[in-house]
Amino acid sequence: MNKYLKVSLTLATIASGSALLIGLMNLATVNPIKTNKENKIKDGISALCPGYHLQSQITFVDTKEGEKYYKPEYDGNKYPHLKNAYRLTLPQWQVTFSTPEKEKTKYVYSTTGKNAYGQVDLLVLVAGGEVEKLLVVTNTESYGPTLEDNYINKYNNGYLTDLADVKCGATYGAKTVKEQCDDALAHWTAFYADKEGI
């Protein structure tokens, strides 16, 4: 009995110490991590749609701390891969001189997907009912660059015409990318197709 008690106590003590250390580190890093993620998404949106203005999806929500964030307009259960949606429009001076094609409002969806090999955070640019471009924000799969080289870059450069799961291997998750894009398109169809006249 004594032996089991000693084993249990040792394990409990070590686990508690670990939890305390991790908790303290979390307190110290939670804000910088949040800022880094936001910056990454902002940079990604600028890279996807240079020249476009970012508008809130519905409303700005002010928290007590004065932080502002976009309140998403989707049902989490219906679109499990969506995290946030951003509406993008051209600034007025550009609209005046641009062709009608360019005036199209664009939507960027911040999406996330997981598979057995890791997590893929992806920005999906939807315009006119089609996925126009994809941008990987984070990819923790065991061999991340393959996903970008063999799938996403090919799609962005027009070598892949649809998001069919062409080459889903053991090392990269084209399947989750496809599901993320499907969710973005489904949301766009449900909420914006009418507004865009499509």
């Binding site: 991790i22 880094n36 990454k40």
Partner: peptide, 30 residues
């Protein structure tokens, strides 16, 4: 016990890299 100790420090290092060295964090991945 050794694995718990190592995992603790790996988690700490991971959080530190994600917060203060984001480029390195995304390059190292899994």
């Amino acid at each position: 016990c050794y694995i718990v100790v190592i995992a603790t420090f790996v988690t700490i290092v991971k959080m530190f890299a994600e917060a203060f060295l984001p480029e390195l964090y995304s390059s190292l991945g899994v």
